[in-house]
């Protein structure tokens, strides 16, 4: 008897257009200008960052966008300690949920310029933006968040 086939090639490649939508586009365009654009729901006063086009609780269009400075606090975090394919940074590093002041939702991003063991929930952080030539309609326009150094003194 012949041996059964156990593998065979069946390659697929699919290319897609991404439609950001009007709501998400406001946020993404803001990132390319170092601006964090939020929107508020007049029905429930939730402030979305990033903002969609309408409130998913009230199903009404959000109010016009306004800018937040991006400073906020770490609401939770974890330390990534293991390597995996496609990783951009050498572990260990900190991935956090950041609650920007004035926003009702959290952004996920890196927290750097601090030893992982010194990160804590409630820590004040601020965004570090990339250089002008790297700015894009992407969350990668923020390189990472770092502890806020109040009054010039180290935190």
């Amino acid at each position: 008897m012949t041996e059964p086939i156990t593998t065979m090639p069946s390659p697929f490649r699919m290319d897609y257009t991404y439609v950001a939508g009007t709501g998400r586009s406001v946020f993404l365009r803001g990132l390319a200008e170092r601006r964090l654009m939020a929107r508020c729901c007049a029905g429930c006063e939730q402030v979305y960052l990033p903002p969609p086009e309408f409130c998913s609780r009230c199903l009404r269009e959000l109010e016009p966008p306004f800018e937040l400075d991006g400073r906020g606090v770490v609401s939770t975090f974890c330390v990534v300690s293991f390597p995996f394919p496609g990783q951009r940074i050498d572990p260990p590093y900190v991935v956090a949920h950041i609650q920007p002041h004035g926003a009702g939702t959290r952004l996920m991003h890196l927290v750097r310029e601090v030893e992982p063991e010194d990160v804590h929930i409630g820590m004040a952080v601020e965004p570090v933006w990339v250089s002008d030539d790297e700015l894009d309609t992407s969350l990668l326009s923020i390189r990472h968040f770092r502890p806020v150094h109040y009054g010039g003194a180290d935190a």
Binding site: V19, A20, G21, G23, R24, P52
Partner: peptide, 16 residues
């Protein structure tokens, strides 16, 4: 081709 609206934006007015 609708290049303006995301999935939820297409749907919301129809659900309403």
């Amino acid at each position: 081709a609708n290049r303006r609206d995301d999935m939820a934006d297409i749907l919301l007015p129809v659900i309403r």
